[in-house]
């Protein structure tokens, strides 16, 4: 299946990107990057570096939106940046990187690329969104026709019943740019919402045994993966949220390929943008057995199977 990956390229986004190389069914056409904490071009550079290390030479990489549509950018959790920037600095020092990475980075805007690709393959493109929805919202505003040619959008974001991770009721990606989320959720009627209700149940704890194949195939990527998971685990401990890392974004990727991993509830989803305590909340309105509900909200997950599929993909087995 043809996939465009819209991401802020922080911790678990990178795990998802690495997994795309280990799932045969996925044809990754492009990666569009939101600029969290660093300019989007730098996040795009990191994506290009990962793809290069994975031996992927066909996927195009774009820098997307730099900050939310209306609001000031949020810093967010910086826990995973250390291993990621270490990887970036290492790659930058690697011979010839600057000439290689030019072949990945693209001068068109991310929104343009998404639109053109959807026009080229009408009804075939899946958008996987694991960051703030700013770039997608911009694409929709710039090219409204896009909503007719997209096949579906799988969003890691929001929460229905579970407590949020940036407020008691809001999840980070939606909270980071609620106006963008409101645009996406109100214009598109083919969304799968993979929110905290399921991602917080899909957990991993790092151990060398789990990543033996990856370590053998690609020590550099293995080092990056290990760094991301262990620093994320440390953040969880610090926040009193247990010792394991939730696989938010990898689960969203897996749902693209294996939708049967989650049980969904047909809903209409509205985004609160004006609340004093509720901004960024995904208000899910049950649509009963409605076949044409605009959003399928994941509410249960076979987490054991999800974790094993994640390990299979990342180890390229």
């Amino acid at each position: 299946m043809k996939l465009i990956f819209d991401t802020d390229m922080i911790g678990d986004d990178i795990l998802s990107l690495i997994c795309t190389a280990g799932i045969e069914d996925v044809e990754l056409l492009g990666v569009t990057c939101y600029g969290r904490r660093v300019p989007p071009a730098e996040r795009a550079e990191i994506a290009a570096m990962v793809l290069y290390e994975l031996g992927n030479t066909h996927t195009k990489v774009f820098s997307g939106a730099e900050k939310p549509i209306l609001r000031e950018p949020r810093i967010g959790c910086t826990g995973c940046d250390i291993p990621i920037f270490k990887f970036r600095d290492f790659m930058r020092e690697k011979e010839n990187w600057s000439s290689i990475h030019l072949s990945y980075l693209n001068s068109r805007t991310a929104a343009q690329f998404i639109f053109e690709t959807c026009e080229q393959y009408p009804g075939e493109i899946t958008l996987l969104c694991t960051g703030p929805l700013t770039t997608i919202a911009s694409a929709i505003l710039e090219f409204p026709r896009i909503t007719e040619s997209i096949k579906n959008i799988v969003i890691m974001g929001g929460t229905r019943r579970r407590q949020g991770n940036v407020s008691p009721v809001a999840e980070s990606n939606i909270f980071s740019d609620p106006e963008a989320a409101a645009i996406v959720f109100s214009r598109c009627n083919c969304i799968s919402m993979v929110g905290l209700d399921v991602t917080m149940k899909t957990l991993i704890e790092y151990s060398d045994d789990l990543f033996l194949d990856l370590a053998k195939q690609n020590p550099i990527i293995h080092e990056l993966v290990k760094g991301i998971i262990t620093s994320c685990q440390a953040m969880q401990v610090q926040r009193g949220r247990g010792t394991k890392m939730p696989l938010h974004d990898p689960l969203a990727l897996l749902v693209v390929v294996y939708p049967e991993l989650v049980k969904t509830r047909p809903c209409k989803v509205l985004i609160e943008t004006k609340g004093e305590f509720t901004t960024g909340m995904t208000v899910c309105i049950d649509q009963g057995a409605e076949k044409n509900a605009p959003v399928l909200v994941a509410e249960e997950v076979d987490s054991e199977k999800a974790v094993s599929l994640f390990l299979k993909a990342i180890n390229r087995k």
Binding site: Q163, S167, P168, V169, R239, G240, R241, L270, E272, T273, K274, G275, E276, F277, T278, M281, V283
Partner: peptide
């Protein structure tokens, strides 16, 4: 208690556990 909110006026935001 949310008193603003275009969708959530009257909602109780209950902070439990880590919140």
């Amino acid at each position: 208690v949310e008193c603003s909110g275009s969708l959530t006026r009257g909602m109780t935001i209950v902070g439990r556990g880590v919140w």
